[in-house]
Design a binder for these strands. Structure first.
Lengths: 219, 219
DNA sequence: ATATAATATGACCAGACAGTCATATGACTA
DNA sequence: TAGTCATATGACTGTCTGGTCATATTATAT
């Protein structure tokens, strides 16, 4: 957690530091992100950073938490526990994809945290995030089975795993790819979002859900 | 590419260097893998490494290529272009999963290369691998559509994307998870493989294919 | 104006990194 | 034995890293 000093900072300065740090962690995995680089870009002294945060990990976890909270809030708006399974998944997938396109920086920070390989220091933190998602999915699936919306000859944990793979960053990446834009380029210039209207997102999401519902096989 | 000197090395020494380097690149992403660490563990001088390879990237690309070739060879054994779509996917998925469990080191090296975020240097190389897989999937899908095995109201590119997400490292990870083992632990002690028989893998693969075929929805 | 506390600073440190190079060792040839 | 070529070596360089700390600046209160 940041020190009280950090919260006493004039808002302009505090925001600037956060923005720069977010950009750094969105464009580099934890171990490659550079504190030295951040402080230079934010126009503050190295020592000052250590008046605000204990160390690199403290800064990172704070920022990851901010990003994750923002995404969760965004998704919760879209989630309605009264929805049937496929409607719920459709809305979650649409919301997640829109979030990644509207807030690519935050999206990347969260997405980076989902691949725990190679960051031993953060492995526990990262696992926790994955486990929470998995549990959420698993409960949705079990409920869908009880309500008779889903086939019951499946292992919920396995299905949750498949959904986790499917519903991640993948769809946003696919949409950018159809425009010939890499996520890297998009991060640097998100103006291209104009072409990716919510309707466009919705159309692709609908197709994915149709597949999730009925499979690939010809009738 | 390695220098002639490297290939002139006594086999024992050459193998030892490769083994150590593979382990390093399997357990660390490119930027975190340490040449200094490799040479110490392999018991050779730093300078010697530079008699064998131009630089770190040269060593890495060589090793990634070895791992990828090995996996491709393994998968090709299992692939039969006469198979119908779902049989082909089933066999590919089973083979890929078995490969990751039988050769976790090679599997990790390849899997690490599939996430190009944060390794700007290697971005082009990594993209090429992804594009080749995607093209392969896309062709399979188009063929399946033509043969009437698959629904034809889907965008092949989108389906290829979904398959790419689905058929990656995910299933091997899931299987390890059901045993309460992380990939990290498994890499250090692959002896646990005994519990993960090919039949076990086949059972889970069959379930995934059933879902891929007919979806999640209750009939 | 003075004293006290909060904040800002950047030179500095130790460690790790990829990569270099002059020198040493060995092996093979004449 | 002398000479030539391939190979091996590890001390060293330059650069970057996260992190520290004595000192300087600023704001607050008396």
């Amino acid at each position: 957690m940041p020190t009280p000093t950090f919260f006493n900072l004039p808002e302009e300065k505090r925001k600037r530091i956060l923005e720069v740090a977010m950009d750094e962690f969105a464009t580099h995995p934890y171990s490659k992100a550079s504190l030295s680089n951040i402080v230079v870009r934010a126009g503050i002294a190295k020592g000052s950073m250590y008046q605000y945060f204990d160390n690199k990990q403290d800064l990172y976890t704070y920022i990851l938490d901010l990003a994750a909270q923002e995404k969760i809030t965004y998704m919760k708006q879209e989630f309605d526990r009264e929805d049937d399974f496929f409607t719920a998944v459709e809305r979650l997938l649409a919301a997640g994809t829109r979030f990644s396109l509207e807030h690519p920086q935050l999206g990347r920070i969260v997405a980076n945290s989902l691949d725990s390989t190679g960051e031993e220091l953060l492995h526990d933190l990262y696992s926790k995030g994955r486990e929470m998602s998995m549990e959420f999915f698993e409960n949705m699936i079990k409920l869908g089975m009880e309500k008779g919306e889903l086939r019951q000859d499946m292992d919920p944990r396995l299905v949750a795993n498949l959904m986790y793979s499917l519903l991640g960053q993948g769809l946003a990446d696919y949409l950018l790819e159809t425009l010939g834009v890499t996520m890297r380029e998009y991060l640097a210039n998100p103006g291209i979002w104009k072409e990716l209207t919510p309707e466009h997102v919705e159309r692709v999401v609908t197709e994915v859900i149709k597949i999730l519902r009925s499979g690939l096989q010809a009738q």
